[in-house]
């Protein structure tokens, strides 16, 4: 099972790299769907059916909203050229080289510290529940809910859910405010 998840993760990485390098925005958004739908399958393998249902529908709605945004806009991507041609001679674009250098240093540094910290984690498949022991053993008796995720979401950790609902309301009010004002025509 670990091998299947690894293959799906490699597919996700390939899809995300293509998403960032695609020539036009529509194919970028469609290949972004690869990442989300592969994530749905991985959630099913990891025994998280609640997450799989939510992720599936959210992915579809995200794609609809993104396509609605770029439908009437310019669809071509703005690629940074790696070389500049001046009077027949190719020069390296310093700015793009600088960005690549910074990204490379950042990625290598972060990756080094991540690999260094992996022995502190438990290996995949082994997990000692600390906080969740009470939730698993007595959750059904204390909340009466057969689905433990729902029991945690609305009983043990109701504050989290209340905060989530508030953030959702705030985000919607923000979207309505941003989209309502008339932009100055340039």
């Amino acid at each position: 099972m670990e091998a299947i998840i690894a293959v799906l993760l490699i597919l996700m990485i390939a899809g995300s790299i293509y998403t960032l390098h695609a020539r036009d925005l529509l194919s970028a958004i469609v290949s972004y769907g690869i990442v989300g739908f592969a994530l749905v399958i991985i959630f099913l393998f990891l025994k998280a059916p609640d997450l799989a249902i939510v992720q599936l529908v959210v992915e579809i709605i995200t794609l609809i909203i993104m396509i609605a945004v770029i439908r009437n806009s310019s669809k071509e991507d703005l690629q940074e050229r790696t070389t500049v041609k001046v009077e027949g001679v190719h020069y390296i674009n310093l700015r793009s080289a600088l960005y690549l250098l910074v990204t490379g240093i950042l990625c290598i540094g972060l990756f080094y510290y991540f690999v260094k910290s992996i022995p502190g984690l438990e290996p995949f498949g082994v997990h000692t529940t600390r906080m969740a022991t009470t939730y698993i053993e007595q959750g059904a008796e204390l909340t009466g809910s057969a689905n433990l995720v729902t029991g945690i979401l609305f009983d043990f950790r109701g504050y989290d859910t209340l905060g989530e609902a508030t953030i959702l309301l705030t985000a919607v009010i923000g979207i309505l405010t941003i989209l309502r004002i008339k932009g100055k025509k340039v």
Partner: peptide, 10 residues
Amino acid sequence: VDPLPQAMVL
């Protein structure tokens, strides 16, 4: 499996 991370990710 641990239900706590699932509830947070939801």
